[in-house]
């Protein structure tokens, strides 16, 4: 829990919103847990995000967004994220332990 908070703090600083169009990543990331689990370790058929490689998460989100990776719902969601948000989410989840 403590680690989570500290990491969220670091991420918020490291990926400070570039513009008003880019959401505060710590809040945006918290909404992912609605499906991916409170600790982002997955649920049922939904994969975990915790501790995945930063580059892997970013690449997958970009692939969902661009349509090169097929999906049921993540393609629809990823289209709503800016590139800065994708970078921030990737850093956030890669640092979760």
């Amino acid at each position: 829990m403590k680690i989570h908070i500290i990491v969220a703090g670091i991420v918020a600083l490291a990926v400070a919103p570039a513009s008003a169009q880019t959401a505060d990543v710590s809040i945006l990331a918290s909404t992912c847990s609605g499906c991916h689990g409170a600790n982002a370790d997955g649920s049922g058929g939904i994969p975990g995000l915790k501790g995945q490689q930063q580059a892997y998460i970013a690449d997958q989100l970009k692939a969902f967004k661009g349509g090169s990776r097929p999906a049921t719902v993540m393609n629809r969601l990823a289209k709503g994220y800016t590139d800065e948000e994708i970078a921030g989410l990737a850093l956030h989840f890669s640092r979760l332990k």
Binding site: D24, I27, T31, G34, C35, Y81
Partner: peptide, 29 residues
């Protein structure tokens, strides 16, 4: 607080092995 982004993901079961969904990304501009 920083700029706000929010998500909604909502599934509906319609039959065995058959569900449908709606997903949305929201932000405050």
């Amino acid at each position: 607080l920083g700029p706000i982004g929010m998500v909604n993901t909502c599934y509906s079961h319609v039959g065995k092995d058959y569900a449908i969904s709606v997903a949305n990304v929201f932000r405050v501009v």
